[in-house]
């Protein structure tokens, strides 16, 4: 068995055994610590930077495909839209939005609940009203809609 291990690897294994109980801490020099901290900070920063595309920052309300209003997702408020068969009420809270009430018979868009991700959409078809969330401009232009 030992014969099949390449010489170089066998030497390294022998060395590793010979090292005994050298504390790991002593293998790190001050510059290493500095570099590790900087690298960890960069890695941590890369998560929000690269994954922010999925975060919505405004709600777009349309009637018959025509823009009715854009609501920023940072202040809680309610907004009523007059549609084809009645009034749809949109509720906005920080970071999310939903259709609070709708005159449609099956209430699909109401039951969809809170929308939180960019490009998520709730469609109240009978009333011709849609609620869509949008992320940072242009970031998600590749998708028409996302559904979860």
């Amino acid at each position: 068995m030992n014969e099949r291990i390449p010489d170089g690897l066998r030497e390294l294994l022998a060395h590793a055994t010979a090292a005994g109980h050298l504390p790991w801490r002593r293998l790190l020099k001050p510059g290493d610590w500095l570099l590790l901290v900087c690298a960890a900070a960069l890695v941590a920063a890369s998560y929000p930077l690269l994954w922010r595309g999925g975060v919505a920052d405004r709600a777009i309300v349309r009637r018959d495909g025509q823009l009715v209003t854009e609501l920023a997702l940072n202040i809680p408020r309610k907004y009523a839209v007059a549609g084809a068969i009645g009034t749809t009420v949109i509720e906005v809270q920080p970071g999310r939005a939903r259709v609070l009430s709708d005159p449609g018979p099956r209430q699909y868009c109401v039951q969809q609940g809170w929308l939180t991700r960019a490009n998520a959409v709730a469609i109240c078809a009978p009333n011709h009203v849609t609620l869509q969330l949008a992320g940072r401009s242009g970031q998600n232009g590749a998708y028409d809609t996302l559904n979860y």
Partner: peptide, 29 residues
Amino acid sequence: VFYLLPLFATAALVFGTINGLVAARLLAI
């Protein structure tokens, strides 16, 4: 692909540190 960058960077940091520690240990002998 850049969507996966944070995951790859985390792996690079973790495995880079471990490999470096092993190398440092081997070199200490």
